[in-house]
Design a protein around this nucleic acid. Sequence first.
DNA 1: CCACATATTGACACTATGCCAATAGGCCGG
DNA 2: CCGGCCTATTGGCATAGTGTCAATATGTGG
Lengths: 194, 194
Amino acid sequence: MTTPARTRLEPHDRRAQIIEAVRPLYLQHPYDAVSTAELAAAAGVTRGLINHYFGSKRELFVEVMRSTIRMPEDELPDLSALPLEDRACRTMDWILRAAETYGQAWVSVSGAANLHGNSDLQEVVDEADDHAARLTLDALCLPDDPHRRVRVRTLAPLVKAVCREWLERGTLTRDEALDLLTETVLLFATKETP
Amino acid sequence: MTTPARTRLEPHDRRAQIIEAVRPLYLQHPYDAVSTAELAAAAGVTRGLINHYFGSKRELFVEVMRSTIRMPEDELPDLSALPLEDRACRTMDWILRAAETYGQAWVSVSGAANLHGNSDLQEVVDEADDHAARLTLDALCLPDDPHRRVRVRTLAPLVKAVCREWLERGTLTRDEALDLLTETVLLFATKETP
DNA sequence: CCACATATTGACACTATGCCAATAGGCCGG
DNA sequence: CCGGCCTATTGGCATAGTGTCAATATGTGG
């Protein structure tokens, strides 16, 4: 193991290293169950440095989330040769596979649970959902005009809820989940836009 | 104004009074932006009492949420005479009206934003969503077997997302929102259950 | 090889939370 | 109507956690 002789890193590298070192902690424990002391220890630095680079513990958390809940774009198959119904089914299958194989974090993080509308996390989750909507439209080979994007974007929380019923509660089979999502995405993505 | 001569209340009444007194604070500020000192001040009691009745600040918060995000069941119209399509449309209209008129809290609170699945808030939100699903099936005059309930329950986050696009972002008109939700609830509620 | 720029540290101050023994409110029996 | 008891309520204490800042040390460039 590397002797923790304190080394000096480029700011950019240090930021990245801290984020990576801290990620597993936030994968297992909720935000306020982990202290800055533990975060710093995991990163092999001092508490002060965390505040120096991220301002506050909260901002570090948000930064970790931002890079964790982004739906990965690779392995997205080329479906351009298939009819629309099949493209929809295969696209949803792609999402479900990501959820079950990698336990993709995107499906496990819904919006922030605060009453007052504006949460720092909300905007991060929103961005991730919007990103997922772009990927979906791309896989469906449908043009991505603003109206369509909005509709598909609203499906993100539905996808997460369905995955939760399927994976965590076992109240839906994979086929049922796939079927529901396929029909819904078809409905939402093909409405004519005014 | 009532002189704050400290009065002695029945435990049950005191609990209720604190919850009511504290609610507006959590409607405007996120959880960790309000201290127990402020909570206690708003309720006209001491910090110690809050811990005495609720154990921790967090548990008080959860309790406030539980009673805040429950969809009210009154004003739910009797639709039994109408055809199913109309019942669906009217039911969704009932939800949208609740959202716009009372700014019903249910639509503004999604699941907890933690990666690790289990949040204390998650279960409260889940219960509220399940309750909303029961109300919906009731209004639709459809039997409420487990499979159907699960499917309708997954719609809760979708409803919230659509309302957010409509009310907060203005990216959907009320009619578009109503249309999307009506078609989807029909799709989800009428699938034959195996 | 030295000196400078700056990444990193360690200690300090402050806030907030939870706990517990001490206090006082108000009902009840005499 | 009064004194005593039960317990709701308080106030202070102990602790943990966060953010700030001057001081320190690293390693690079002249």
